[in-house]
Design a protein around this nucleic acid. Structure first.
Ligand code: MN
Ligand code: MN
Ligand code: ZN
Ligand code: ZN
Lengths: 126, 126
DNA sequence: TTTTTAAATGCAACAAAGTTGCGTTTTATT
DNA sequence: AATAAAACGCAACTTTGTTGCATTTAAAAA
């Protein structure tokens, strides 16, 4: 992988994501960031953090992309095959690391990743 | 529900979606349609077809929204809780109606819909 | 069939989201 | 301290999605 550097913007954005209970979108990060760095830099930092496997992308049912910190259970390879919950009302997106769905892998398809999202009402909105 | 009408644009767009093996995005429909109707009309027709429960939306892992025809198994209520497959290479999105995942619904959450997407390589790209 | 009414459309204008190129700044190695 | 390239800001651009409004059109009513 290409050499990456630690910058103020990168650290700040990663902290925002790590400290957040819910996954954050680019727009949300931008609002929380305001004067820290340019809009474009946020896009580039997010891409870098994803490439470095420090955060992961979550596509919500309405097509919004959100970002959440990865929880490395062991030191080596980890997957993002856990379930996410997207609240219809407050639009929060949460990782449900404990929920592990089971399914039959269809023949003729090579499954590399799974992206499971439940939607409805979160505990705060129920 | 509000009265809806059958128009040339609506019929044509629905045919495109019904005849397609894979789910289609707004952009793809627009290209296939070219001179049939305005860009904005496509957005409005898609919204209408979703509201009428004739097609359903699928959010792909990269945030693109695609549309696929609903398969009503019985005459009455039906769900969209089946799995979708998104190909990394050709970006095709397919409904895998037969795959039925099982999982434990987390406490304190009210689950209304599930959106399960597998990604990797489709049979054509394997 | 003709009239009527509201749904649907096209168009223009706008807003939001994401991308690209490039000159400048900054990180981290030498 | 000097160096190299990663990262940045900024401007310009493309793509995607939304809104208002005058006009057209589908379908119900007369
Ligand atoms: Mn997650
Ligand atoms: Mn489907
Ligand atoms: Zn909520
Ligand atoms: Zn494919």
């Amino acid at each position: 992988m290409k050499n990456t550097r630690n910058t103020i913007a990168k650290s700040a954005i990663l902290e925002l994501i790590k400290n957040s209970e819910v996954a954050l979108s680019h727009a949300e990060i931008q609002k929380m960031n305001q004067e820290l760095c340019d809009r474009v830099t946020i896009y580039r930092v997010l891409d870098r953090l994803v490439a470095e496997d420090v955060i992961h992308k979550i596509a919500t049912p309405d097509g919004t992309i959100k970002y959440a910190a990865c929880h490395h259970h062991d030191n080596h390879h980890h997957t993002h095959n856990h379930v996410h919950f997207s609240c219809e009302k407050c639009h929060s997106v949460t990782c449900l690391d404990s929920v592990e769905p089971s399914f039959n892998v269809p023949k003729n398809y090579l499954v590399k990743q799974v992206n499971f999202t439940l939607s409805g009402l979160c505990p705060d909105c129920i």
